[in-house]
Nucleic acid binder design. Structure first.
Length: 114
DNA sequence: ACCTTGACATTGG
DNA sequence: GCCAATGCCAAGG
């Protein structure tokens, strides 16, 4: 498997996150069939062509924090996009307990992928 | 080829 | 909650 392929898996998978929901980089990697490779998920979002129009802003750190520094241009943009979907961001952070994915949904998504 | 830098995560103190 | 240590690994220098 080439890294380009890995990126494409991530790009395909991130589009499965429904509006109004969020996932962590680790979950994204897992769903893409790349367990333990959260870092790769971040990398591939960073390098994704803008033309793909990915919902990158629905991906957060495992503790719910935005991946960008508080007050940065990127963080503000992400916060705005999330709040437009009624996801509350406080102190650069989302309450992940409100967004736990049910195991059967994860199951469905995994089957969609492969 | 070696080193550093990240849109990361988990564990242990 | 904070920090350091580990594990992860592609990109760019």
């Amino acid at each position: 498997m080439t890294t380009a392929t890995h990126y494409q898996h991530i790009w395909r998978t991130v589009q499965l996150i429904p509006s109004g929901k969020v996932a962590s980089y680790g979950q994204l990697a897992d769903l893409a069939g790349l367990p333990g490779r959260a870092r790769l998920a971040g990398k591939s979002l960073a390098l994704a062509p803008k033309s793909l129009q990915l919902p990158w802003y629905r991906v957060l750190r495992s503790n719910g924090q935005l991946a960008f520094p508080l007050g940065s241009e990127q963080a503000n943009l992400q916060k705005g996009l999330l709040q437009k979907e009624d996801v509350v961001v406080l102190n650069n952070r989302v309450n992940m307990r409100l967004f736990q994915w049910s195991p059967n949904l994860i199951d469905i998504l995994c089957k969609l992928e492969y």
